[in-house]
């Protein structure tokens, strides 16, 4: 059995995925998606000098990378404590659910674990779960925050 954990800042979903992987002896992969949609999200704003826009976009990217690092460290700690092997993958996408679905398609997973509401990048504004459910062809476990 192969499990994919879609990462955001929820530690409950990490624990839940690790527990499932442990109980079922499954192979666990975790996917962290960097949101590259900031340029589009702020795209209508014409008043800024482009330099100010660029500075913000750099700032948002640095924040994304910092979150990736922090989340990876958090997951590693918890995986070690739970005694489960976990492979961490990173992807970048304009919309986070798209990257999750792409990974599901190529990875041959049996189960997707993600938190709900899913808070990764700009998905704080959107309903990631609905989007993922629409496209996913495996079981999906939504973990409440």
């Amino acid at each position: 059995m192969r499990i994919l954990l879609a990462l955001d800042d929820s530690t409950r979903s990490m624990d839940e995925a690790l527990r499932l992987a442990h109980d079922r002896g499954a192979e666990l992969s975790a996917l962290f998606v960097l949101d590259t949609g900031w340029s589009v999200y702020t795209g209508h704003d014409f008043l800024l000098g482009s330099h100010a826009r660029g500075t913000f976009l750099d700032y948002a990217r640095d924040d994304e990378l910092a979150q990736e690092k922090a989340t990876a460290a958090e997951l590693q700690n918890r995986a070690q404590a739970a005694g489960v092997d976990c492979q961490l993958k990173t992807a970048a996408a304009g919309r986070v659910p798209e990257a999750i679905l792409a990974e599901l398609k190529t990875g041959g997973y049996d189960l997707l674990v993600m938190s709900h509401p899913f808070r990764r990048g700009l998905e704080v504004m959107r309903d990631a779960a609905t989007q993922v459910l629409k496209g996913a062809d495996c079981d999906v476990l939504l973990v409440k925050r």
């Binding site: 590259t36 340029s39 482009s50 993958k89 992807a91």
Partner: peptide, 21 residues
């Protein structure tokens, strides 16, 4: 980091695209 490193594959350069607007 198996799948792709976004810093290297250029995808993140979207961020820098409108400096000279």
């Amino acid at each position: 980091m198996a799948q792709s490193d976004p810093k290297k594959c250029g995808k993140m350069t979207v961020f820098r695209s409108d400096r000279h607007e």
